[in-house]
Design a protein around this nucleic acid. Structure first.
Lengths: 171, 171
DNA sequence: GCCTTGCTACTCGGATACTTTCTGTCCGAGTCAATGTGG
DNA sequence: CCACATTGACTCGGACAGAAAGTATCCGAGTAGCAAGGC
């Protein structure tokens, strides 16, 4: 009796959803921009996101030099580079930080035949194998720019640029 | 005044350190095994890990069919497959769960021109791009088996099998 | 002497606390623009 | 009419709570072996 059903794994190792917000916001900035800055509030209203929290993510993009921020009336955010110079990797690093998903804790340090002079982050074979996968991931992210994304979106939905511009221009 | 120094990004999107523990423990099981099971306590003592928590990770490996568990005296864990049939991907999925790192929240659902009939996890261009990177990561993890890891370790440190076996055999 | 039976010690398994990270909110510093005033 | 100081509202920026996940621990269910007792 009382059979136990395994409900499936819980959600592990997920990146912040701020990455998704940041990517879409950058695209919207590219479509909206005609020399004017867009406030975090407007960008958040686009998807019903909490404005203050999106603002936090945009700050991270600003620190990374992806967007530029202006305070005061008529202030807001605008792209600091061309879309073709912004890779997915740039955005992910800006939001999630530069560290690899797999963190080698160097547990071999505590093992029976440990050598204190060795850095197991580079020497440990397990760590090397995991790093290989991380590098493949990063390579793929770095190979795609936001310009590529925009081009694909516009080819599928040609109305998107105008719709977005209008929506952001509206008070 | 009171200049603020940015301390660098905090550590985001890190996978559980249980992955590292699980990988090393599987290798140790392969070296120790001579038909006998090894307890979680012994495996934990190898690196000074909390035994009960390592046990938790080993349970996850057991659910995934990577190791088999036996209760009672002379019980413990032993490999359920050959090392060549265990990929890094298998271990990561067992510990971290099957979900991708990037979770498309389908924020386009809340966008201005949303189509409720569309599943944006597959339709959203941003999601597709992120998935491409995830797939590259998974492909790399699936391409490496624990047998590969063992072979590399043994070629670099030929003493490891015997050292490990002796250490695990010791009371 | 051998079989049966009960017991004890041992191990996994999942339920339970504690810590860190992520998510969300708030208020202050700075800024630009409009407005009113004086020349 | 034009220049300038003042005011005011608006926006980002970082500091401050709440929620969720990761980490660590504990105790119970089950099992295998051992020991004692009976045949």
């Amino acid at each position: 009796m009382s059979r136990v059903f395994w409900m499936g794994s819980v959600q592990h190792m997920q990146m912040s959803e701020g990455v998704e917000w940041a990517l879409h916001s950058c695209l919207n900035l590219a479509w909206a921009e005609s020399g004017t800055a867009v406030t975090a509030t407007k960008l958040a209203a686009f998807y019903g996101l909490p404005a203050a929290y999106l603002n936090k993510q945009l700050q991270a993009l600003a620190r990374a030099g992806i967007v530029a921020s202006t305070s005061g009336p008529r202030g807001g955010f605008r792209l600091a580079k061309a879309l073709k110079d912004i890779t997915l990797m740039d955005v992910v690093v800006a939001i999630e930080g530069p560290d690899a998903a797999f963190r080698c804790q160097q547990i071999l340090r505590s093992g029976p035949d440990a050598d204190p002079t060795v850095d197991y982050r580079t020497a440990c074979v397990v760590s090397q194998a995991m790093s290989r996968a991380d590098l493949a991931w990063r390579r793929e992210l770095a190979a795609q720019t936001l310009a590529d994304i925009r081009a694909t979106v516009e080819s599928r939905s040609p109305d998107t640029p105008e719709l977005t511009r209008n929506r952001l221009a509206a008070k």
